[in-house]
């Protein structure tokens, strides 16, 4: 069965490594923090100005001055640090953050990503996404395999205005884990119970399918 958003987050959390500084985008990526594997310590950076972001506050203890990049009230862990936006993006642009997880509307087989604008219809703005994808060495895109209309989001070429070019290396969806290399999506794992045929049908871009494709272990 295809994963739900929490399942995607849970699978992404398996990519975390001890000691990493991690930036989580809005949406599914935010949920990754709920599934940090045992024995692993990571610190979450939120680009509005905190390192060491903690869980949501207990009801009644929320602080208007303490939010994450999604404008949600949060808490700070012991050892947290606050800083201004120029400092925050120095961490990002300077490649001091080891992993970036963000959502997307489209990803192409050469690693392009689009997630900020649908011309004439919707403009959210890029926020920090363009800075993040242009500089991060390790980017995972977390998204549903198809959009609400059932159209594949894994494409030969993005149709929407780009956020970054040739930057995405890994995509984790409700159906599969895929790596992007040599101008193609390479199927690495499939969601429990999901067949290779289903993934092929849901992927518009070129898909390389090895002989053995294990199921995700969640």
């Amino acid at each position: 069965m295809a994963l739900d958003k929490n399942g995607i987050a849970q699978r992404i959390a398996q990519e975390l490594r001890d000691g990493w500084y991690v930036n989580l985008g809005i949406g599914i990526p935010t949920l990754v923090a709920n599934y940090i594997p045992e024995g692993i310590e990571v610190e979450f950076q939120s680009e509005n100005g905190i390192l060491g972001m903690g869980p949501f506050p207990i009801d009644g203890e929320e602080d208007a001055d303490l939010i994450n990049a999604g404008k949600q009230t949060i808490t700070a862990m012991n050892g947290a640090a606050y800083f201004d936006s120029a400092m925050s993006f120095a961490m990002i642009r300077g490649q001091h953050v080891q992993l970036t997880v963000l959502g997307a509307m489209e990803v192409s087989q050469n690693g392009d990503i689009a997630n900020w604008k649908i011309p004439g219809k919707m403009v959210k703005g890029m926020g920090g996404a363009m800075d993040l994808v242009a500089s991060a060495e390790n980017i995972i895109v977390a998204m549903m395999h198809a959009n609400k209309a059932g159209v594949s989001k894994l494409l030969k070429k993005c149709s929407l205005p780009l956020t970054g070019v040739g930057c995405v290396k890994k995509v984790i969806t409700n159906l599969a884990v895929m790596e992007i290399k040599n101008n193609a999506f390479h199927l690495v794992e499939r969601a429990p119970g999901v067949t290779v045929e289903e993934i092929m049908a849901a992927t518009e871009g070129d898909l390389v399918i090895p002989d053995n494709i294990p199921e995700m272990q969640l």
Partner: peptide, 12 residues
């Protein structure tokens, strides 16, 4: 006023 845009909390 310090309005909160996205009040998100957890239960004790």
């Amino acid at each position: 006023e310090k309005r909160i845009e996205q009040r998100t909390v957890r239960q004790k």
